[in-house]
Design a protein around this nucleic acid. Structure first.
Lengths: 240, 240
DNA sequence: ACAATAGTGTCTGTTAGACAGTATTAT
DNA sequence: ATAATACTGTCTAACAGACACTATTGT
């Protein structure tokens, strides 16, 4: 029968089956005052009420037509902006991570400029930027510490073979700023020359102008990322 | 109240909420007769009945305490063996990929030796090894073509900076075999010398003995992977 | 000896690390 | 001029690509 699939679907009702809970969580990073920051939100509801957690929540079938919709929606809610860089990190699913039962979370890593969302973040009391090392010592909800660590590790790897971390800086940034951020991520100084050679060869930034001299020393040139920066990978890593 | 979380959980019933369907799928690859093969199964039930698909299925809360349990169970069902290499690939979730409704799949890539499971596979009629390029031309169920392509692409990348593809070979293998597999994966010949230098420097294989001469030419040395092979990555990629 | 396949020696090219040198700003 | 920060020149080291060479098997 050519329409027995239609017949099957007619009879099928998802409510007859129990499915794991599905949530989306995001480790949102930025760089400010020489420190790696991660966005945390205080849970207002049970379970794990009043604990800090990564921003996230349930897929809302009436609002989201895909997981990417869900993560963008959650990000918008907590930061007020659309992140210039979002990437799926991993999924974790098991019986024990959520007291409500078998639960799956799809975790994302996002990068945003601190300047782009600070005014929004500081006006929402249950949301704040936390220095990464501080966040590590907190008793975050669910398995969010492990997810945050995995996101941090992936970001470190990216720093070794790409310039993706630049998406955590404002649209216009200087090379010393970017270099410093990479150094924080990989926890090692990078040779200025190596860093600049790589940027030059990759052709992923374009010059904007000269930064207005602020304080001492020679003012640095400002740059903006080209679209190609998202995909570009170096064939040789920085050393660890 | 110290136990209001307990009270909340007491009252909470998952059946009150509709959650997306959650499935696990695996792109299982192997290498045989100079070709990359992928394991396909014929769907016996609606929806997408009678189409070929990647092995996978629903999380079974009575059997699986984690997503890894689910994928191992499905793999065991279809191949009869435990895969020496499994890695989470990505998750796909949206309203349209499954006619039954909002659905999330957590996809894995697995590598197995053809020899290890061929006797099992050839005795199950709805399971078979398909040459990858052939599989590409088929009308696979759901979005399995896209998932399979993503898995294939990741495997290619791995071939450029690791020896992970070796897990698709039998436990004892020769270096010419492994080199040939990498060449198929990256679609480019590799310099024998480069390949062997990398292996030597990485220290991820141990010599077993000399292969019994089979046919013509000098017999090659056989090797086995060390545990460290799973994690090892070269700091410099092969060229593409 | 010859064909075929396995494995090595050695040169070149590319690119990261090291570090000294030059440039541009404020005081 | 000096200090401070930005940026460049140039040497070295590591390692992939190229390719000729040797080694071990069967016929």
């Amino acid at each position: 029968m050519h329409n027995s699939e239609a017949a099957f679907l007619q009879k099928y009702d998802r409510r007859d089956y129990l499915s794991p809970l599905v949530t989306v969580d995001a480790a949102i990073f930025t760089f400010h005052n020489g420190q790696l920051l991660v966005l945390l939100t205080k849970r207002s509801e049970y379970p794990e009420k009043d604990k800090w957690a990564l921003p996230g929540g349930f897929v809302d079938e009436s609002k989201d037509s895909s997981l990417e919709d869900t993560v963008q929606r959650k990000l918008q809610e907590k930061t007020g902006v659309k992140a210039p860089y979002i990437e799926q990190l991993m999924s974790v699913g098991n019986q024990h991570r959520d007291a409500r039962g078998w639960s799956v979370t799809v975790a994302y890593t996002a990068l945003v400029a601190w300047q782009a969302c600070q005014s929004f973040v500081e006006n929402v009391s249950e949301v704040r930027w936390e220095v990464y090392e501080e966040a590590l010592t907190k008793d975050l909800a669910f398995d969010h510490i492990a997810i945050m660590k995995a996101a941090r590790e992936r970001l470190k790897q990216k720093a070794l073979y790409s310039m993706v971390p630049a998406y955590a800086l404002p649209e216009e940034f200087t090379l010393p700023e970017l270099q410093h951020f990479l150094e924080v991520l990989i926890d090692k100084t990078i040779q200025k020359k190596s860093f600049r050679r790589r940027l030059e060869q990759a052709d992923i930034v374009e010059e904007i102008g000269i930064k207005a001299p602020s304080g001492k020393g020679r003012p640095s040139t400002t740059y903006r990322l080209r679209e190609s920066a998202k995909e570009f990978t170096f064939i040789r890593n920085l050393e660890v």
